[in-house]
Design a protein around this nucleic acid. Structure first.
Lengths: 115, 115
DNA sequence: TTCGTTGTTCGTCGAATATCGAACAAGCTA
DNA sequence: TAGCTTGTTCGATATTCGACGAACAACGAA
């Protein structure tokens, strides 16, 4: 579990962010994180193998969409909403609104018990 | 030169549109078309082979981002801004603003003489 | 130290993408 | 009809992506 790299705000790449946000599962993850709360990795439920989920979270992290904090053997994920808003104003809001209206990424949700 | 398929407004897929807009060259094409004017294919200049340009225009068209009209042996392209705004409000505006600020897709431009 | 938990990384696979040049097709034009 | 122009389509490559299971690494607990 090497320490993950997070691009600085000024390093965010628009095409990279757009690409990260072009997958339904990743859009679902962003939706789940949209309320700004920090979520535990294990709290995230998606219909894919955990290695696949790890991959998608890495794509989001590498693009600068999310931030991962490590605590012991656990990880916590947050949406870098302010950073994204600074660099690409309105983009995430528009995406979330559209995704919500369309039900994109609805396969992703949180563990019932708040696990 | 078969007649191209254009998805209806209600058929636009958010992930597909996001994917179409995740390539610098395609973002550049959208920027060039952002003023709403219809542009001739031959007017578009990009640092790629014409078959590659044709491919990118097809990706945009298939995703519903642009509309292609054929007139004789020539093609004219427009941005489907209203359709996109209807389905994904604010998305294209946010993208254009960010791309403009970042200079994304600046390799694409119009032929000097308006060809 | 020995487990058990928690994510990451690795190796692999098939599908998709970006790119090019060449060949092609559809209309004009001579 | 014979060219010319204009894009599209067709291979051919090279690369990337999404997915999986298995192996691994880091840490806490027993």
């Amino acid at each position: 579990m090497r320490r993950a790299h997070h691009p600085a705000t000024e390093e965010l790449s628009l095409p990279e962010v757009m690409a990260a946000l072009s997958d339904p599962l990743r859009i679902g993850l962003v939706r789940v994180l949209a309320d700004g709360a920090e979520r535990g990795w294990g709290e995230l439920r998606a219909p894919v193998a955990k290695s696949t989920l790890s991959h998608h979270l890495r794509v989001l992290r590498d693009a600068g969409v999310t931030r991962t904090r490590q605590e012991g053997t656990r990880c916590f994920v947050t949406l870098r909403r302010q950073d994204l808003q600074t660099r690409f104003p309105g983009l995430v809001e528009a995406l979330l609104a559209a995704a919500g209206a369309e039900g994109v990424g609805s396969g992703v949700h949180l563990a019932p018990g708040g696990n």
